[in-house]
Simulated scan of single mutants.
Amino acid sequence: MHPALEPQHGRAQGMPVGPVPRPSARVVLIDDADRLLLFSSRDQLNGMVRWYTPGGDVQDGDSHQEAALRELREETGVTGVTLGPEVWRGRPWITERDGVTYEVRQRYYLARVPAFEIDTTRMEDFEKTSITGHR
């Protein structure tokens, strides 16, 4: 198991130390018609729909920019994108996946692209089952 995925425990008492940091990179993707791409997911606990930009985890050895471009390719099929500046750092938030609690720390980058058809065939299985739509 990757060290970041192992449960974190206190040394003496066996108490949880806290959530595992999970750096993330996202892209504010705007096409030449000034449309912003968002994906949606439905919260399994309360049924609420959440909309968010393309992006995901920063993997070992990746910079935030490399992760943003990789995730953009996987989630949309778009390649050859030049990222603009980092435009925002989101407030950290807590999530749980497979029994591990994470603190997600997101950086957002701006990118402009020509209009395109989204290709989701490179999405990971988790994304294919959790993403309910895009606009």
Rank of each mutant, 00 (worst) to 15 (best):
W88K: 14
G18W: 13
H9W: 15
M123R: 12
V20Q: 09
L45N: 07
D34Q: 04
D125C: 01
V49T: 15
R135W: 14
A67Q: 05
G77C: 04
K128L: 12
D32A: 05
G56Y: 02
I30Y: 02
T79N: 10
E74M: 12
D43L: 07
L110Q: 10
P92R: 07
T132W: 09
S130D: 05
H64D: 06
L29V: 01
P54Q: 02
I131T: 11
I131E: 07
M1R: 15
D34W: 00
G99Y: 09
V20E: 03
R22F: 13
I94G: 10
E117D: 09
P21K: 01
R70H: 01
Y102S: 03
D62G: 05
D62W: 11
T101W: 10
R22D: 05
L69N: 05
P23I: 03
I94Y: 11
R35A: 05
F116S: 02
G77Q: 03
G10R: 15
T76K: 04
E117Y: 04
R50H: 14
R122M: 13
R105H: 06
R50V: 09
R135N: 08
I30F: 00
A111L: 08
L110D: 08
R91F: 02
M15H: 15
A4V: 13
D31C: 01
E75N: 02
L83A: 08
E86A: 08
I131A: 09
G18I: 13
G18H: 12
G56M: 06
H64N: 03
D57P: 06
G77R: 01
R135F: 10
L37S: 00
R91T: 12
L5G: 12
D60T: 13
A12K: 15
T95G: 05
E74A: 10
K128Q: 11
L37T: 03
D60E: 07
V87A: 11
G10T: 14
Q8F: 05
Q13Y: 09
Y102P: 02
I30M: 04
R50T: 15
W88F: 14
